[in-house]
Amino acid sequence: MLDDLFRRIFVVTILTSYTMSGFFKSSIGRKVAMALSAFFLMFFLLQHLSINILSVLSPETFNEVSHFMGTNPLVQFVLQPILIFAVVFHFVMGFVLELRNSRARKVAYAKNNGAANSSWMSRNMIWSGMTILAFIGLHFVDFWFPEMNTKFIQQDWSGTMEGVEGLRYHHELVEKFVNPVRVGAYAFAFVLLGLHLAHGFTSAFQSMGGTAGRKKILQTIGKAYSILIPLGFITIAVYHYFNH
């Protein structure tokens, strides 16, 4: 009885993964894969902003939450690799799709009026995406690489540092926003992120086949999300610049 059940589960899993692998090789499958990684990244942004807000409201709580996120094995060894995979996948797939799409039109129009029928954001996802990629590079140099160095190379998981009372995270964050050039670069990148999200939010739902009949509400939520999330990050950076 149990053998039979396991055999059935095995057969269904093999068949499903076989048909799904074909699905993800199709143009629509790639869109769905882009949308799924986008959903994960949009959820991550919301979570990241929620923690960043704490740096303004309560430095102590921000330190505690940061220490939890930085040392919890589930976050470090499960969620973090998934996040890195989602980021890399979203970018690589974005470039692959851009390349494939450029091959689909070998001769360009002498005159093309894209603004007549589509938004700037929707036509320039690759450029806003590349700005965000450059920002992630800066963000990694600022925070992620030093954090990995402290924890995995120097094996220091205490969350403290010399000269700083208590946990170090709030101190490190504020230190970064002393430089106006960095604050400006962060703000610029987040404006581009906002433009990316302004198209990407509803686009992800459309790719998943979800917008039919529910366009208005999704567009409203998308607009709010694409304005509030970048505005939140920018406000926090500016706040720390003026209050360090």
């Binding site: 143009s27 091959r103 007549a116 029928n117 589509s118 929707s122 686009s203």
Partner: peptide
């Protein structure tokens, strides 16, 4: 139909919505 569409060399939709307008 989707397999044939991909085989013909059409590009991937990025939901710009230009097609609906035109």
């Amino acid at each position: 139909m989707v397999a044939q569409m991909d085989l013909e060399g059409f590009g991937n939709c990025t939901n710009t919505g230009a097609c609906e307008v035109e």
